[in-house]
């Protein structure tokens, strides 16, 4: 028996994705400590990382970072496969879908704030649909739409501004 070694090729992109995902996971954990007045209303600081990766390295890497963050973040806060995990995943998938479109808009006109607001709305829309279909099978959840939409707009703008600020240095 000879010991066999499996070499995994690690590209620069892989390292980059891992590094960004680690940053996003830290933000997810930090945010989990912030009490929320209403389940589902939280700043979504980890999305700042997604926005930055999207701007610098394109959608594919942003999707990797986001999905890794959802997976590892949920494992760390003990939510893996719990409702919270499915909610994050649904929100993340929908906002990635919207970002795929939004990132094709001309950059001179639409900056990170546009991406952020669009993705925040997609995020909450996906989560509301999942909540309605699965967790709270009652139209009562839609009474809260204005609250969720307002939070999406506010945090979308704030996160977008932070991302734009962090990206500013390389303009």
């Amino acid at each position: 028996m000879t010991a066999s070694t499996i070499e995994l090729e690690v590209t620069a992109a892989d390292r980059r994705i891992a590094r960004y995902a680690a940053a996003a996971i830290v933000l997810t954990i930090a945010e989990a400590a912030i009490p929320s007045p209403l389940p589902g209303v939280k700043p979504g600081l980890a999305n700042i990382v997604t926005l930055i990766v999207l701007w610098r390295h394109g959608w594919r890497e942003a999707a990797w970072v986001t999905l890794l963050r959802v997976l590892a973040g949920s494992l760390l806060v003990g939510q893996f496969l719990a409702p919270g995990f499915w909610l994050s995943l649904t929100g993340a998938l929908l906002s990635l879908a919207v970002l795929a479109v939004a990132s094709r808009l001309p950059r001179g006109l639409f900056g990170p704030v546009s991406h952020s607001v669009a993705s925040a709305f997609a995020h909450i829309a996906g989560q509301l649909v999942l909540v309605r279909l699965w967790l709270v099978p009652h139209d009562g959840v839609f009474h809260l739409v204005p609250v969720f939409a307002g939070a999406a707009l506010l945090f979308g703008i704030v996160n977008g501004l932070i991302a734009a600020k962090l990206l500013e240095s390389e303009k």
Partner: peptide
């Protein structure tokens, strides 16, 4: 200064 013209549009649409 970080806001681009289209950003205002998106924010208005959100509002």
């Amino acid at each position: 200064a970080l806001l681009r013209p289209g950003d205002w549009l998106v924010m208005l649409a959100g509002l």
